[in-house]
Design a protein around this nucleic acid. Structure first.
Length: 727
DNA sequence: AGCACGCCGACT
DNA sequence: GTCGGCGTGCTC
């Protein structure tokens, strides 16, 4: 024992927002009442940061290093369930607990209460001289309500100087107004839904799950347009009635204005939003009000899972199959799985909703761990589109083109009916590969192994993996020949070019994430809904839940794209994407058509889409995975490692195979197959480890850390496993 | 993760 | 002569 330990000092472990394996110890100043969950300001190196007091163990440290907590924030502590959830998440994702705390605390300054805003209240004294403007002001203020200076001026239609004059005369007194809630309280009786028999049966089951106030997972499975949202809104209503908070997770909420409108239609107010596009000030207010319980319903992206709810009683994960629920940087997690765990810890129900559930959720439902609730068929005026595949071997496009005559004709007919067409191609840019016709040189990214994609609108060659870009040259850099570079294959820009040539009079809109920000995208989507376009050409983002009432044709330019990319989930992903895209048609009851251009019309995915027989697809896919040693679905781990070359990545894979000969399969996906960001000039390759349990994957991590790349943080893990096995 | 310190290249 | 690039190391 050192001399220092004689100094009596109370210390607590604090999770600080950095990747330390353990919490740090801080001295508690006399009189400060901290406990597990308290949010505190602590000194850390040269700066001060927010941290969470925890109850974990700490390394014993030199008492000289010990520094005191600077401040206990005026903020309720995070509750025990949240602490347990954070601990679980850190352990499960193999992340430092401090980094999970960082996700919880990622609000600039929400830890102190929102200061009240200065306001004015009628003091009961009439002004010396009455004027028209003054009368308008008094009419509003005489009720005794407190107003802000500018708010009152604006409402009365007078200049703020009129208000100032009245203040000077003592007509108004200065008061402080408590901060306004970010959203009004939802009204469960605002517009009771009228549900079909099918729907109300499903809603009853969910309502019952909420009423029981215990953990359960329900998989709400119904085709696009079957009214899943209306059904789970009833569960939301029940939870609100029971005085619980509700979290609705959406894949990319910034884009789905439509969801907020539907919520408003049902509950008379919008839910609080939570996503990365939120203004910092709003972020703080939402965080604070969630913590204080003023906000009852949050609709948010995956990070909303780490909001400090105090009375959470229901989580809905909409579009549960969506890959956007996965976070692949820093702490890697799948919000859908984390939601299930959050529900388990909090003892409340979780609803997973999707028209095309993930295989792992299907299997969980088949095995009875999830409660399956099926909604069959579209309701009201929404009809299924007529779906057909176009065999590209029999109906090839004309040379230099990518649209088959059958699709061109369908677009033509749709134009004549004054209806809208959507052409979908999941590839940004003009062409995915450029080569020299003279020497065969192919343009490759200098930093990765992938081809450079030509973006003709920008005049650049762009790497879709790492973001490297260069101007498109005139001459071949290898042989120097001028004007013999040729673009191979289509991207949306090239399809737009072909469509412009084929239909010169049509109004065309191209929707691609690299061409516009969220704001611009919303405008374009509105324009399309208002009928200001005849043909929409778009990438993945058009698949998300936007409704275009006059869209009666969906053409998929390359339905095979994505089927052969080495990902064991390729078939599932393609099925989900194509289902979503074709679901964009036929929301109005008009006769509508979906056409899939494919070279493999007999592929199970194409057959499932065309026949509408999702059940057959899932059965087959599950069987297929059982055969190829991927059971039980979702038990698929992936390590992300940093390596400069594929050879280096292969070396790591060999080390893993040696270390774990029992593992069924270890494969290396390079940047081209597994899109990952470049980190500090190094590629991130991904090792997919199939057929393993979490403990196996943790074993791999240890191997990687021992024998793998030595830099810290170079090895990441994404434990992408069914959470039910670990509860 | 941040942030400081520190050591080498092109410029007001 | 300095400004500024990012490699290295540390934080209770």
């Amino acid at each position: 024992m050192s001399q220092d330990s004689f100094i009596p000092q109370k210390t607590v472990p604090v999770l600080v927002p950095m990747p330390a394996e353990r919490p740090y110890s801080y001295a508690v100043p006399d009189g400060m009442d901290v406990r597990a969950g308290s949010i505190v300001r602590v000194p850390l190196g040269p700066r001060e940061v927010a941290g969470i007091v925890t109850d974990g163990t700490t390394d014993s440290i030199d008492a000289k290093k010990l520094r005191p907590i600077s401040e206990l924030f005026d903020c309720p502590p995070v509750d025990d369930g949240m602490l347990r959830f954070m601990r679980w998440a850190a352990d499960y994702t193999l992340s430092p607990p401090g980094m999970v705390a960082r996700m919880v605390l990622r609000v600039p300054a929400a830890f102190d209460p929102e200061p009240p805003v200065p306001g004015l209240r009628f003091a009961g004294r009439e002004p010396d001289r009455m004027t028209g403007a003054r009368a308008r002001v008094l009419e509003l203020a005489e009720g005794g309500m407190a107003w802000t200076r500018t708010g009152l001026a604006h409402a009365a239609g007078v200049s703020a100087t009129v208000i100032d004059g009245l203040v000077a005369q003592g007509v108004f007194e200065q008061v402080m107004i408590p901060a306004r809630p970010v959203v009004a309280a939802p009204d469960v009786d605002y517009a009771k839904a009228s549900l079909s028999g099918d729907q109300s049966e499903a809603a009853d089951q969910l309502v019952e799950a909420v009423a029981s106030a215990s953990f359960s997972v329900s998989l709400l499975d119904g085709v696009t347009g079957s009214g899943k949202t209306e059904v789970y809104f009833e569960a939301v209503a029940k939870a609100i009635e029971q005085g619980k908070q509700v979290l609705i997770l959406l894949p990319e909420i910034a884009l789905t204005q439509q969801f907020l409108d539907r919520f408003h239609d049902r509950f008379g107010t919008k839910p609080a939003e939570w996503h990365s596009d939120l203004a910092p000030r709003m972020r703080e207010r939402v965080w604070r009000q969630v913590m204080e319980g003023q906000v009852r319903v949050v609709a948010g992206a995956r990070s909303a899972l780490f909001l400090p709810f105090q009375e959470l009683g229901l989580i809905v994960v909409d579009e549960e199959h969506d890959p956007a629920y996965k976070q692949e940087d820093r702490v890697c997690y799948n919000a859908r799985d984390m939601a299930v765990v959050r529900g388990h810890i909090g003892g409340f129900p979780v609803v997973l909703a999707s028209a095309t559930p993930s295989i792992e959720s299907q299997v969980n439902a088949n095995q009875g761990r999830y409660n399956r609730i099926r909604l069959s068929g579209r309701y009201a005026e929404a009809a299924m589109p007529d779906l057909k595949s176009i065999d590209m071997r029999r109906s090839p496009p004309r040379p230099g083109g990518f649209l088959s005559p059958a699709l061109v004709e369908a677009v033509n007919q749709t134009l004549q009916r004054k209806e809208q067409s959507l052409l979908f191609l999941n590839r940004r840019g003009y062409a995915p590969l450029t080569l020299c016709r003279v020497c065969g040189h192919r343009f490759q990214c200098p930093d990765c192994s992938s081809w450079l994609v030509e973006h003709r609108f920008r005049g650049q060659l762009v790497c879709h993996q790492c973001g490297h870009h260069e101007a498109r040259p005139e001459a071949c850099p290898s042989c120097g020949t001028l004007d013999h570079l040729v673009a191979c294959g289509p991207g949306v820009e090239r399809i737009a070019e072909e469509v412009e040539k084929t239909f010169p009079d049509a109004r065309i809109i191209v929707l691609s994430s690299d061409l516009m920000g969220v704001k611009r995208l919303r405008l374009e989507l509105d324009a399309i809904a208002k009928g200001e376009a005849d043909i929409v050409i778009g990438t993945q983002l058009v698949a998300k839940g936007h409704n275009f009432p006059n869209m009666t044709l969906v053409g998929v330019v390359d339905a095979d794209l994505g089927l052969a990319n080495g990902d064991p989930r390729a078939a599932e992903r393609t099925f989900q994407l194509l289902s979503q895209v074709t679901g964009r048609a036929g929301r109005t009851g008009k006769k509508s058509l979906g056409l899939l251009q494919t070279y493999q019309p007999d592929h199970p995915v194409m057959r499932a889409i065309v026949s509408g027989d999702a059940k057959a697809f899932y059965e087959r896919e599950i069987e297929e995975r059982e055969r190829s040693s991927l059971p039980p679905f979702g038990r698929l781990g992936s390590l992300i490692i940093s390596a400069a070359t594929r050879q280096e990545a292969e070396t790591h894979a060999r080390a893993l195979r040696r270390a774990a000969p029992a593992s069924d399969q270890i494969s290396v996906l390079g940047p081209a197959e597994a899109p990952l960001a470049l980190v500090r000039g190094r590629h991130r390759f991904r090792l997919l480890v199939h057929g393993t349990r979490k403990s196996d994957i943790q074993g791999f991590i240890r191997v990687m850390l021992a024998d793998g790349p030595k830099e810290r943080g170079s090895t990441r893990v994404q434990v992408d496993i069914d959470p039910q096995s670990f509860l």
